[in-house]
Structures are given as structure tokens and as C-alpha cells.
Amino acid sequence: MTMTSHEVIAILGPVDHTLVAEVIATGATQAELAEAFAWVNNDEALIGEGRRLASGRVAALVDLLTSDEEEPQ
């Protein structure tokens, strides 16, 4: 099921509308977005737990979330 903008914002917090649309366009689930958000915010802890690196839609979401952070203000 496709996420709504409210669901995306509930996970990510206040973000740009363009990012919300891009996240929704991936077709990812709330669980996938939450996992990607965890990777972006604490990848060392997840690796320390022995979790495999993100792949598929989660990896695509990680790319979206980190590319937004890297843009100059």
C-alpha cells in the first residue's frame, strides 16, 4: 500500500514536499522507510548488530534521504 504524505512526515519529521513526493514515488512501505531512516541516522549501530547493508527500496530511500542532507543550503 502506498504511503501518504502524513505517514512519511510521521516517520521523517518535517521535510520538504519534494522529498515526500520522491519517497512516495518509490512505492516503499512505512517499515522500509523506517529502516532507511534508521540507517541514515545510526548506521554504525545497525552494522554493530550484524545487520546487512540496506538493499532494494531501503537502499533507494537511504540515497534519497542522504542526498537531501548533502545539498548546499
Results as ranks from 00 to 15, higher is better:
residue 54 A to F: 03
residue 14 P to H: 04
residue 57 R to Y: 00
residue 35 E to Y: 07
residue 71 E to Y: 10
residue 30 Q to D: 15
residue 72 P to N: 02
residue 17 H to P: 03
residue 29 T to Q: 10
residue 56 G to Q: 02
residue 16 D to R: 10
residue 72 P to D: 05
residue 39 W to Q: 04
residue 15 V to L: 10
residue 13 G to Q: 01
residue 17 H to F: 02
residue 66 T to I: 15
residue 44 E to R: 08
residue 1 M to E: 14
residue 1 M to T: 14
residue 57 R to S: 02
residue 4 T to A: 12
residue 73 Q to G: 10
residue 22 E to A: 15
residue 68 D to I: 10
residue 54 A to S: 11
residue 39 W to S: 04
residue 44 E to N: 07
residue 49 E to S: 04
residue 25 A to L: 14
residue 63 D to M: 09
residue 64 L to E: 13
residue 58 V to R: 00
residue 7 E to Y: 11
residue 35 E to H: 13
residue 18 T to M: 10
residue 66 T to W: 11
residue 33 L to G: 08
residue 60 A to V: 04
residue 20 V to R: 03
residue 34 A to L: 08
residue 12 L to A: 06
residue 41 N to L: 06
residue 14 P to A: 02
residue 68 D to S: 10
residue 50 G to A: 02
residue 3 M to Y: 15
residue 5 S to T: 08
residue 67 S to F: 09
residue 64 L to V: 14
residue 67 S to I: 05
residue 19 L to M: 10
residue 55 S to G: 01
residue 25 A to S: 15
residue 9 I to C: 06
residue 11 I to Y: 04
residue 59 A to W: 05
residue 11 I to H: 03
residue 58 V to Q: 00
residue 66 T to R: 15
residue 15 V to E: 08
residue 38 A to H: 09
residue 19 L to N: 02
residue 55 S to V: 11
residue 68 D to W: 15
residue 12 L to M: 11
residue 45 A to E: 07
residue 36 A to C: 03
residue 61 L to K: 09
residue 20 V to A: 08
residue 48 G to W: 01
residue 38 A to D: 13
residue 9 I to M: 10
residue 26 T to C: 10
residue 63 D to P: 00
residue 15 V to H: 06
residue 29 T to G: 11
residue 15 V to F: 13
residue 67 S to M: 11
residue 22 E to D: 14
residue 7 E to F: 12
residue 67 S to G: 02
residue 63 D to V: 10
residue 35 E to C: 08
residue 66 T to Q: 14
residue 14 P to E: 02
residue 4 T to F: 14
residue 9 I to S: 07
residue 21 A to H: 02
residue 18 T to S: 06
residue 8 V to E: 04
residue 69 E to T: 09
residue 27 G to F: 12
residue 71 E to D: 07
residue 28 A to T: 07
residue 40 V to D: 11
residue 10 A to P: 04
residue 10 A to G: 05
residue 59 A to I: 01
residue 8 V to T: 07
residue 46 L to N: 05
residue 16 D to K: 02
residue 67 S to P: 00
residue 24 I to Q: 09
residue 65 L to Q: 07
residue 41 N to K: 13
residue 68 D to R: 15
residue 34 A to E: 12
residue 61 L to R: 09
residue 2 T to H: 14
residue 71 E to V: 14
residue 11 I to F: 07
residue 51 R to V: 04
residue 6 H to F: 07
residue 60 A to C: 04
residue 56 G to C: 03
residue 59 A to H: 08
residue 12 L to N: 02
residue 59 A to C: 01
residue 26 T to D: 10
residue 47 I to H: 12
residue 37 F to P: 00
residue 30 Q to S: 15
residue 36 A to Y: 06
residue 9 I to D: 00
residue 11 I to K: 05
residue 70 E to L: 05
residue 7 E to A: 14
residue 70 E to A: 03
residue 37 F to N: 14
residue 53 L to T: 09
residue 35 E to P: 01
residue 22 E to P: 00
residue 19 L to R: 07
residue 31 A to Q: 14
residue 42 N to I: 00
residue 70 E to V: 02
residue 72 P to V: 13
residue 46 L to D: 07
residue 12 L to F: 11
residue 21 A to I: 03
